[in-house]
């Protein structure tokens, strides 16, 4: 019973993770400028990865294994945040303007 519940939850979490990955990828492809693309990537990927890690976490055999999973997630989150910051910084310094709706453009 408890196994069934756990497996069900894992499947749900994995599907949720996949949804956020898909959303992030669509955002990367469809958003108009570098800033919003970064936004789509980092936010969606972190939640997507978070849900995926959670899905595996409840299947973990030992505490060590769980800790490793959390470590993977934490590293990925900080790395992607850092890199997003670097990219945005670089774009900003190179004078890339953020996208505006056509009616808002000066």
């Amino acid at each position: 019973m408890i196994d069934l519940l756990r497996d069900g939850l894992t499947i749900v979490l994995l599907l949720g993770g996949a949804f956020f990955f898909a959303a992030g990828t669509i955002g990367l492809l469809r958003f108009p400028d570098v800033y919003s693309r970064l936004h789509a990537l980092t936010k969606a990927d972190n939640v997507g990865l978070g849900l995926t890690v959670l899905a595996f976490l409840i299947q973990a055999d030992s505490v060590m294994q769980g800790l490793k999973l959390v470590l993977v997630w934490a590293l990925a989150v900080t790395a992607s945040a850092t890199i997003a910051n670097l990219f945005a910084n670089l774009a900003h310094r190179q004078g890339v303007r953020e996208w505006r709706k056509p009616e808002d453009r000066p």
Partner: peptide, 14 residues
């Protein structure tokens, strides 16, 4: 880059 430096400082020992 303050963010990068922060990250690298924590990552390096790990």
């Amino acid at each position: 880059q303050p963010v990068l430096v922060w990250f690298v400082r924590r990552l390096a020992p790990l």
